[in-house]
């Protein structure tokens, strides 16, 4: 396996909840991300899935240093992202970039496309000498499949998919090594979504990029990811290769999530087992003790309320009574559940 380019350890991000107008006091903490660890390997796409409020977008913000981390480390090529400042942080910006979700607000409506894609070069003038910039902008437009003639247009003259391409060109301008994609296709129509996903896959090959691909759509994540992490209420609950997660999920949340995805095949109607979760996701201000999923889990026992299950491979599970149910060789992967168990045929 290739070496990790990004190593995240015990990442925590809590947002204080404040009350009061003049004298604001902290009355609680939104535990948006609460101890997340993962490695991103070179040239790999790590998918992060989870429902709204699970902390996946906060994860992106913290990794981009848009929000300060509460604790934890993130090493990019051995260098701690969170300790960088000044020019070192600026240097890091060239290596890690982000593609945002909403193509309608992520582009400044009063800047031309040329200015938008050229801005990275203005901020980092050392990347491209002034004379080269125009040519570079045109080249980038071409790379993402837009006509270089469009430099003088404004964002509103483009459709959603085209705007997302502009956002991708901007992220690509500084030739980063890692791109964090925060729900890059969820605001797009199906037919356009496919175009943008193909583009992302193509760019990864062409520029040997590594992606952290954050999305709530499980099919989209599977399509692009090599490995997948599933998040629930600020924690990573299961992590494995795309095949392990989608074909051999062992965490009950992952299983429920996968079985809830509607399958575009009416002949399977009523034939597949759908795990219907009850209730809503608990508030991240006061998450349940122990396993955070226990309040909605059909397998929950007393142990789940008292002890937090670590994200470990059940083959080496420290908890007594937990057994790896067999299944395929090599299907064993980390799952933060006291009673991990493979369920046959979760995905139809």
């Amino acid at each position: 396996m290739s070496e990790p380019i990004l190593q995240v350890r015990d990442l925590v991000k809590h947002f204080p909840v404040k009350r009061g107008v003049l004298f604001r006091r902290t009355i609680g903490q939104v535990k948006a991300v609460d101890g997340v660890s993962f490695d991103l390997n070179k040239g790999e796409t790590l998918g992060v899935v989870g429902e709204s409020g699970c902390g996946k977008s906060t994860l992106a913000q913290v990794l981009m240093r848009l929000e300060p981390a509460t604790s934890g480390t993130a090493l990019f090529e051995g260098q701690d992202i969170f300790s960088l400042n000044g020019s070192a942080l600026r240097r890091l910006r060239r290596d890690i970039q982000i593609v945002l979700q909403d193509p309608y607000t992520s582009l400044n409506p009063r800047m031309t496309v040329g200015d938008i894609i050229g801005e990275p070069f203005e901020i980092h003038p050392e990347v491209a000498p002034k004379g080269d910039r125009k040519a570079k902008v045109r080249e980038l437009l071409d790379v993402v499949g837009l006509s270089p003639e469009h430099v003088n247009r404004y964002p509103h003259q483009f459709s959603g998919g085209q705007r997302q391409r502009i956002g991708i060109a901007r992220a690509l301008a500084l030739r980063p090594k890692v791109i964090i994609c925060d729900e890059p296709v969820s605001a797009l129509d199906v037919s356009i979504q496919a175009q943008v996903m193909n583009l992302l896959a193509e760019l990864r090959r062409e520029f040997s990029l590594s992606y952290v691909f954050i999305a709530h759509d499980l099919s989209v994540v599977r399509h692009l990811s090599d490995r997948v992490g599933v998040m629930y209420l600020g924690r990573m609950v299961e992590m494995g290769t795309e095949e392990q997660i989608y074909e051999h999920p062992t965490h009950p949340y992952t299983q429920a999530l996968l079985s809830s995805v509607p399958v575009p095949d009416p002949s399977l109607r009523g034939q597949r087992e759908i795990i219907r979760l009850t209730g809503d996701v608990p508030s991240p201000v006061s998450p349940p003790s122990g396993c955070r999923f226990r309040t909605r889990c059909w397998k929950a026992r007393d142990l789940c309320a008292t002890e937090t299950p670590p994200l470990v491979d059940p083959g080496t599970s420290p908890v007594e009574g937990a057994t790896w149910p067999g299944g395929d060789e090599g299907a064993s992967h980390p799952s933060a559940c006291h009673f991990p168990e493979e369920k046959p045929k979760v995905v139809a």
């Binding site: 199906v190 037919s191 979504q193 496919a194 996903m197 896959a201 759509d217 499980l218 099919s219 989209v220 599977r222 399509h223 795309e242 989608y246 996968l258 995805v261 399958v263 575009p264 995905v347 139809a348």
Partner: peptide
């Protein structure tokens, strides 16, 4: 053009 849960197409 729809990505499917049971497929990982290129």
């Amino acid at each position: 053009s729809m990505p499917r849960l049971d497929q990982r197409g290129q």
